[in-house]
Design a protein around this nucleic acid. Sequence first.
DNA 1: ACCGTCACATACACGCAAGC
DNA 2: GCTTGCGTGTATGTGACGGT
Length: 718
Amino acid sequence: MSHFHFPPQDNSCKYPDLMNTVPENQDHNRRRLRRATLAEKIKVLDWHNNSERKCQQATLQYFHDLGEFAITKSTMNRWVLNEKELRQDYKNLTLNNNKVYKTKPKFKDPEVNRCLELLYDQITNENCTITERELIQRWSNFYLMFYNIPKTDFNSSTIPTKSNGWLHHFKRRTAFKRDLVKRFHTDSELYSVRTLEDEKLRLKNTLARYQLSQIYQLDEVSFKINPTCFIPNHQSNSLTIPDPAERVTVALCVNATGSSVFAPLIVSDLEPSNKIMKSLKNLFYSKSGLLTTEIFFKYLKSVNDTIAQNAPQEKIVILLDDLYTHIVPQDEFTNIELVYFAPSLNKLDYYPLDFGVIRIFKTEVKYSIMQIFFKKLTIGMDQSFSKTFTLSKEDLISVIMDTWNTMKYNTMLTSTSFHNSQLIPSFAVLNQHRSMPFDSDVSFSLRDTNKETQIVNMLRVIQERNLFRNHKGLPSRKHSDLYIDHFLFPAEEKVENVHLQDSDIIELVRREHTGIDPDLESGQASSSSIQHNISQIGQPESAAQTTLHPTGSNESRYLHNGYPQDQPTHPTQRQHNTNIVPSPLTTNLIMGELDNLKSQRTAPHSAMLANSNDVSMNKSSANGETVEATEIGKLMLGRLKDFFSLPENINHYSNSAIQFHRFLNTYLQESNDLYMKSYANQKINKQSRGYNSSQNLEQPSKRRQLEGTTNSFDQFMG
DNA sequence: ACCGTCACATACACGCAAGC
DNA sequence: GCTTGCGTGTATGTGACGGT
């Protein structure tokens, strides 16, 4: 009966919120406020969770008094009860609808609709146009393709027709992004740049307003979990683009002094499975594995909010290339300005990060990856090749995080990269590092020849054992530079604008729609601590965490650098620990393995060196440590082999045998590292311009000392 | 060819009030 | 102070139509 309290004219007003001129305190003439958008509901929930009392009435009162949207006791209670679901929906908001989204849309053919969205997105990104008739035609095409309807059944009755009205709404739904991209493409200043000189001038003028520490560049790289040089592309899918499900994409964002850095954006199709992963606010999950505009926007927003929280006055500028996903609305950025490189120049070599940061980052990560592969090669005897040379995404992400956590203290690397790009006032850098003997050599970019040599050596070992399944990825190893370049920067790992074929769109949408949202558990923890966690992104970690690990042993590293130590079940650890289980097969393999190890030890590194004719190694020229390691290795192996040559011993002590086996593998790995280090150190002395990052990663005090004199700088640069 | 409006359909979410 | 059943309002997809 009470429903008739409202006079009919209330209902006739479709948008009561537009009539706010009516005073609200007149009860008899009260207008209903508009419904809350999903974003507003989330705002209420956040406020509620962060409030002292967590009293629904109090929260209700607060937002009721604001009078921005309708809210009642029962409504709000339902929001609280459905919090997980609401937050799940909130994650799926796009830039197009996040301002208006209220009710979950129910499309007739959601998948086909999504296909058309992707297509339309791409068309606007590529600055093309499409007529409405064509759009409707494409909808039908997608419909046929998605449901695998053969063209022979091509009668109009099987395909639902789409009307003009439908199209109008479709275009309105996608209007926000379209206008955004259009604005980018009509930026006359950006597109009028013709020469590199113009561009440098333009950027210098723009950047002049900022201090060095406020100038950032962001750029993406990716890593394939199964490098094609080891495993030929199986092409189980029909994608014409690099498969996003097989890679992890990383966006580095650093400033010109290297002083303040943000955790890199990491995207993959690996769903966060534990609390740690969920708490990392720079780690993003996308069902297709692709970096989306939304993810990129969220990342930048969190960077912005971090600055706004810690230093409200600080304004920074971020340099970006013309990757489609970089085009985001900027009106919400209070502390960030985005500046794009001129797309018309087609990526000439002048981006600061390309002068060393990217290369060294890739080198470090690939080095760790190779170590994992090596470990799997020696330990995982019963694994297939494709398994051996495929990383889990957890491992890869861990490696990326660890690498970053080490590299971010290398301010020298970053500042030098920026300096060499010549986009910033050079005197400022020279003032900071007065000892730098730089000339105007533009093409000079930094690299870690030490690590690169080690990688090449490891690749050679693999090549000699004929483990390369696919030689396409790597050129002749005689051209050492090409060799390493192809390994570090294979085409499949480039992050660039791609053109999706219709079949790609279908495939991606299929992937997006498989599985029915399994993520309805344990959203509680992350929700209540969102505010807290966001602040973690930009927090420079304390120097105490710079612990460097001399060995390549990865297990030890996971315990440091960003992962809380009270979390015993990191996926990586779990995997490595269960790697060796006592089984008859493993036990039987031990004898053979011991032989293997011994042959490598007694003829030290012959396998590693067989083809490195440029440097001849012998024991006397190696440093003492290496010789010692080799001798100890020989000694131990001899004893062990004797001991385990008796069958009853191996049966009786099978567990111990496995332990020994494991220990020896670690030992082998570490002495390999030692060896490679001494090998590379010798080599590096011959190089006129190398970059020895291992020295640079010393304690800060030592670095300062190095910077003090010109002589030590030469030594520092190799 | 493009753009906008309208009527209609529908499912979800709102507000009330009673119940816990 | 929080939850729930019920009747209905609201948001929004859809397609027809008409104007420019």
